Simulated assay, not measured.
Amino acid sequence: MKLLFLAPLSPKTGNHTTAERIRSYIESAGHTCELRDAGEFQSPAEVAHLVNRDPPYEGALAIHVFKAGRLLLDVHVPFGVIFGGTDINEDVKDEQKRVVMEQVLQKARSLMQLSPSSSSNRKFAVAFTDKLKEEAELFLVAQSSKIYVQPQGVQTEVTEKLCWTDFLRNSGVRNECVDELRIFLLVCGLRRVKDPLYLVEVFSGWHCKNLLNILVIIGPKIDPVLTVEVEAVVKRTTGVYLAPEQSQLELHAVMKRCFAVVNSSVSEGMSAAILEAMDLRVPVLARNIPGNAAVVQHEVTGLLYSSPQEFVHQAQRLLSDHELRERVVRNGKLYVKKHHSPKQESETYQRLVGTLHSA
């Protein structure tokens, strides 16, 4: 089967990593899967023209119902959609976007029901968590619809080539006590929904009381306006640094060396960075929002906070309570192993794409 796969593909983002992983699953099952950036296309008509080229595509897949799925509204091949966190946490609040998403989901269902033998198990929509599924059913999808829940699979690899001292120097960190630094790593693309400046002021005040506590922000520069703002704030703030982008292997090596991985997002579908940190046995400090609370159980697999001040409190607990640190690290690793198996994820997408093939 020849499949077109659309997704937002900003380099070195969770969306890009997830899409590449799913593409590999599909191709390992013997299909041809062409992954394209949704940002390349201006309208559904462009995608319909692409799909109909000789040899035509036989099916399609999209991550993010609005950003990518809307581009499939004019195609006449069966397709499936995967909900992104932005779909449910942000876009559904916009009436125009919500209407478009409903049209996408209705189109997917109608294309999957081409014959009387089609059954509900061939309605292809996927959510990463039960919470996202519940929200989708509440705001977008009729109760008769079937939404599969398939958490993201996690498989981390770490390069041995990273020089920790060079990484810190390139990030602007100047401290003779490199091995004593407690690096809190905020992994996020520079865009508003990730709220990269949320902790900066309070963290800087904490750093001034203990110069070994350092916050490093790392991720692709997605929003140019916000990037300029972040760079300006970081430049005049002590104890907070902006690191250059890294490859996934290098990023995992950086995560492995840091004291804790931080999330400060306004909303999340399922944070790949949080899951990767857990898999690497690194403590997680995550903002208490539904997407994070779905994977981080407070004091069990990580720590949640609801304000910058509470972040500092929880960080201090991690520093002083070694038993707590060991517990969340151990349980985080076990959680990822149990609930985020790449093997299970692979089997799910191969099976679902198989329903497109038989449609």
Results as ranks from 00 to 15, higher is better:
89 N>P: 00
151 P>M: 06
271 S>N: 07
234 V>K: 00
257 R>G: 02
313 H>I: 13
105 L>N: 11
307 S>D: 09
105 L>V: 12
54 D>P: 12
267 S>R: 09
244 P>C: 09
322 H>I: 13
254 V>G: 01
153 G>N: 01
89 N>W: 01
300 V>Y: 00
36 R>F: 04
333 K>A: 15
215 L>P: 10
244 P>W: 08
58 E>A: 10
314 Q>E: 15
170 N>W: 03
116 P>R: 09
4 L>A: 07
279 D>T: 04
151 P>Y: 09
294 A>S: 12
198 Y>A: 14
230 V>I: 02
94 D>S: 05
256 K>M: 06
103 Q>D: 15
256 K>T: 04
136 A>T: 03
250 E>V: 02
35 L>S: 05
282 V>D: 04
272 A>I: 12
340 H>P: 08
298 H>M: 05
160 E>D: 15
214 I>L: 02
344 Q>C: 00
78 P>F: 13
251 L>F: 02
312 V>F: 03
41 F>M: 02
264 S>L: 11
82 I>K: 06
48 A>C: 02
247 S>L: 08
349 Y>I: 05
193 V>D: 06
27 E>L: 08
181 L>Q: 04
36 R>D: 01
199 L>E: 14
353 V>Q: 02
241 Y>R: 12
247 S>E: 12
299 E>T: 12
104 V>I: 10
179 D>R: 11
304 L>Q: 03
34 E>A: 04
2 K>C: 03
207 H>N: 14
142 A>V: 10
293 A>N: 08
67 K>Q: 13
350 Q>E: 02
271 S>A: 12
139 F>A: 11
299 E>S: 11
308 P>Q: 10
151 P>W: 09
167 F>G: 07
344 Q>G: 00
340 H>T: 05
24 S>V: 04
5 F>W: 04
278 M>K: 02
282 V>T: 13
268 E>F: 01
237 T>N: 07
4 L>T: 14
135 E>Y: 05
227 T>E: 12
232 A>D: 15
232 A>R: 14
34 E>T: 14
209 K>Q: 14
214 I>G: 02
162 L>C: 02
12 K>S: 14
113 Q>N: 15
268 E>M: 01
252 H>L: 02
59 G>F: 11
9 L>C: 09
206 W>Y: 11
182 R>I: 12
33 C>N: 05
198 Y>V: 00
325 R>W: 11
310 E>M: 09
111 L>H: 11
196 P>V: 08
92 V>D: 14
325 R>K: 15
264 S>Y: 10
95 E>W: 08
246 Q>G: 05
300 V>L: 11
67 K>M: 09
145 S>I: 06
269 G>Y: 06
314 Q>R: 10
244 P>V: 08
81 V>F: 02
41 F>A: 06
331 N>D: 10
348 T>F: 13
80 G>P: 09
205 G>I: 02
228 V>F: 10
20 E>W: 06
355 T>L: 15
167 F>Q: 08
150 Q>L: 01
252 H>C: 09
330 R>L: 13
269 G>H: 08
134 E>A: 12
147 I>V: 12
102 E>M: 14
303 L>W: 01
234 V>M: 04
287 R>D: 00
261 V>A: 09
352 L>K: 01
310 E>H: 07
332 G>P: 01
283 P>Y: 07
120 S>P: 13
11 P>M: 07
354 G>V: 06
